[in-house]
C-alpha cells in the first residue's frame, strides 16, 4: 500500500487530530493553533475519558484498521492516559501507518 507523505507525516496527522478534536468538542474546541504536540488531552483540553473514546472513533473513521486505537489505549495505565499528549497519539498513528 502506498500512502502519500502529506497523509502520514506528523504535521498532517496533527492537523487531522486537531480537526477531530473540533468535531468532538464542538463549541468548546480549542483554537486550532493552540493544539501542539505537547498539548495534553485531559489536563490541558479538559477532555473526559469518554471524549477520548469519541476522538478515537473519529480517527478510526479516518485511518480504518491501519491504526489500532483500542489496543493502544489498553496498553496504557490510567496515569499515562491522564498525561497523554497530542504528540503521543500523533506518533502512534504515524508509526502504525509506516
Amino acid at each position: 500500500m502506498t500512502n502519500c507523505v502529506e497523509e502520514t507525516g506528523e504535521a498532517a496527522v496533527l492537523a487531522r487530530i486537531t480537526r477531530a478534536l473540533h468535531t468532538v468538542l464542538g463549541d468548546c474546541a480549542p483554537d486550532p493553533g493552540a493544539v501542539t504536540m505537547e498539548t495534553r488531552f485531559v489536563e490541558d483540553l479538559d477532555l473526559e475519558s469518554i471524549d477520548l473514546v469519541v476522538l478515537t472513533g473519529e480517527l478510526r473513521a479516518a485511518y480504518g484498521d491501519r491504526v489500532d486505537f483500542p489496543g493502544y489505549f489498553a496498553s496504557l495505565d490510567l496515569s499515562e492516559i491522564i498525561g497523554l499528549t497530542v504528540g503521543h497519539l500523533v506518533r502512534h498513528v504515524v508509526e502504525s501507518l509506516r
Binding site: 473526559e48 475519558s49 469518554i50 477520548l52 473514546v53 489500532d68 483500542p70 489496543g71 489505549f73 489498553a74 496504557l76 490510567l78 492516559i81
Partner: peptide, 10 residues
C-alpha cells in the same frame, strides 16, 4: 463505556 474501552475491551 470508556472504563471498558481503556481496559479490557480490546
Amino acid at each position: 463505556l470508556a472504563d471498558y474501552y481503556f481496559t479490557i475491551a480490546a
